[in-house]
C-alpha cells in the first residue's frame, strides 16, 4: 500500500505531523537511561545547562531538549545531536538539580546505539 506509485501529480505532498505521538513512540532508550543514570529523572528543564554550554555557543545543541526528547521517545536524529557535546562538564557544574550531565550524555548515546532497536 505505502509504496504506491504517485500516479497523479498534485504539486504537493501530505505534510508530516509535528505532533509527538507519545503512545506510538518507543521509550526503551528512556528506560535504559534512567536506570543507568538515575539523575536523568531530576531535570526540571530550567535550561541552565543549555545556556552555559560550550557546544551551544556554536550550535543549537541543548541538553535540556535532549533530555525531553528522550523522555518523550523522540529519539530520531538524537544520535547526531549528541555528538556535538564536548563533555566539558560546565553544565554539570551549574545544574541546580545535581544531574550528572556528562554521564547522562554517555548513557543516552550508549542507549541510542545499543538499546534503540
Amino acid at each position: 500500500m505505502s509504496g504506491a506509485v504517485e500516479k497523479v501529480r498534485f504539486g504537493f505532498s501530505v505534510n508530516k505531523d509535528r505532533q509527538i505521538d507519545y503512545d506510538a513512540n518507543l521509550k526503551n532508550v528512556s528506560d535504559i537511561v534512567q536506570k543507568a543514570e538515575p539523575t536523568f529523572n531530576l531535570c526540571i528543564s530550567c535550561g541552565t545547562c543549555a545556556s552555559t554550554c560550550t557546544a551551544g555557543k556554536f550550535t543549537d545543541f541543548s541538553l535540556r531538549k535532549v533530555i525531553l526528547m528522550v523522555r518523550r521517545g523522540e529519539t530520531k536524529g538524537l544520535e547526531n545531536e549528541i555528538t556535538k557535546c564536548m563533555l566539558c562538564g560546565k553544565c554539570q557544574l551549574v545544574c541546580p538539580r545535581g544531574v550528572s550531565t556528562r554521564n547522562l550524555i554517555l548513557q543516552i548515546h550508549k542507549a541510542l546505539k545499543t538499546g534503540a532497536l
Partner: peptide, 9 residues
C-alpha cells in the same frame, strides 16, 4: 481521493 492516489490508502 487525493490520499488514495498519493499513498494508496
Amino acid at each position: 481521493y487525493a490520499l488514495s492516489e498519493m499513498e494508496g490508502k
